[in-house]
Design a protein around this nucleic acid. Structure first.
Length: 218
DNA sequence: CTCCCGATAT
DNA sequence: ATATCAGGAG
């Protein structure tokens, strides 16, 4: 496990690598962002961004999703994976928005997670990106990077990872750091081919060194 | 825990 | 061919 100074060094370094890290899901309001994040489960942002322009042109409001047959919505998002459950969730989500939230996305995380298809991670993204609340959404990248670097333990659940990050990172930096961790994971510390040989954090990364030795590079 | 699932990288 | 992708519901 990294100590306090090492964690500070990690935050500084990824800050230099990805100073402008931000949400890469294209959206122009909280409602579109919520739909995009629901769609992004087990799919790349790039793919979601290919589908949403047409989707957001056709569906402007929760009512638009409610008034279309399920099969038609499924077809509109088919290119993204898990399309049947996502289509069903989006229709339920929009139903709740109209019936219980006046057609608007709620700002409170405890309300967000009540929406169909919205779990803790999605709620954190919406609260943080759409409403500027401090939050750390632990997705596949944040989890992998945190475990590889030794910010948390390998056996930690995603909830434990989130708590650890909130404890070790100043609250004012939660949102930007969260996005930098994602960029670091997405473009550098990648799942399949991590760029260990050219990583500025290799010296303090146990997993990185282990990988390098395994390949005879260290 | 399993299931959902097409697109893309390796 | 297989692993992975801004996970969540049952």
């Amino acid at each position: 496990m990294l100590n306090k100074k090492e964690i500070e060094y990690v935050l500084l370094t990824i800050g230099e690598m990805f100073p402008e890290a931000e949400c890469e899901l294209t959206h122009s309001n909280p409602f579109e962002l919520t739909i995009a994040v629901v769609l992004s489960a087990q799919a790349t942002d790039a793919l979601v961004n290919k589908v949403t322009p047409n989707l957001f042109t056709k569906y402007k409001s929760p009512e638009d999703y409610i008034h279309v047959p399920l099969e038609e919505l499924e077809n509109d998002i088919k290119r993204i994976g898990l399309f049947r459950s996502k289509a069903k969730n989006i229709k339920k989500l929009c139903q709740s928005l109209v019936e219980e939230y006046g057609g608007e996305i709620p700002q409170d995380k405890s309300e967000l997670v009540k929406l169909a298809g919205v779990g803790r991670k999605t709620a954190n993204v919406v609260a943080s990106v759409a409403f500027g609340e401090p939050a750390i959404a632990v997705d596949t990248h944040v989890e992998r990077v945190s475990k590889r670097l030794g910010i948390c333990r390998w056996k930690d659940t995603v909830l434990e990872v989130e708590k650890t990050l909130m404890r070790k990172i100043p609250m004012e930096e939660w949102s930007i750091t969260h996005h930098r961790l994602i960029f670091f994971g997405r473009y550098h510390c990648k799942a399949q081919s991590p760029q260990c040989p050219q990583c500025p954090l290799l010296e303090l990364c146990r997993e990185g060194k282990k990988r390098m030795k395994r390949r005879g590079l260290l």
